[in-house]
Amino acid sequence: MQCQECNHRQATLHFTKIVNAKKTEMHLCEVCAKEKGDELPGSNSYSIHDLLSGLLNLDPSMGAGADYAKHMKQEEVLRCQKCGLFYKDFVKNSRFGCSHCYQAFSANLDPILKRVHGGNHTHTGKIPKRQGGRLKLQKEVLSLKEKMQKHIDNEEFELAADVRDRIRELEETEEKKGDQ
């Protein structure tokens, strides 16, 4: 069978998605599958399954066959740049290596969190007092910078200058807070 993306190489990865009894099939070669990466439906379903079957133990019945082995290879390369933890090791131990891992593995994380936390994946609780203020400020600065860029693009330079002054003001207050 040929890969349905490039119509050239042999399709080695086969995905079947069944939603509300509607079946969709995908047949891809390894190269195209890699390119598609995370947008591919179910491309990380095996590892989610691993985590959910007791969060620790791999269920071998799911993993039979060559497709699975190839699939696992893709996940093996996923790694946190900060602490160096491989995604597969996170799956194995169900422990993150550092706070950056949450970003590094974010594409695969929400389904896991949903399963563990009764369908929830977003924090709605406490926001730290001091850092929370800083986060809010950083967010505001970021959105102001976007606004400034828009004004520049539209050649509204006076407006852009006003926004720039506001950004400076905010950044100064943050520095002052940091000094305290």
Binding site: L55, S94, R95, F96, S99, Y102, L109, I112, L113, V116, T122, H123, G125, K126, I127, P128, Q131, G132, L135
Partner: peptide
């Protein structure tokens, strides 16, 4: 701390 995920912990639970 992450705005979306809250207090980040070693275990996802």
């Amino acid at each position: 701390f992450d705005e979306k995920k809250g207090y980040l912990t070693s275990c996802p639970t």
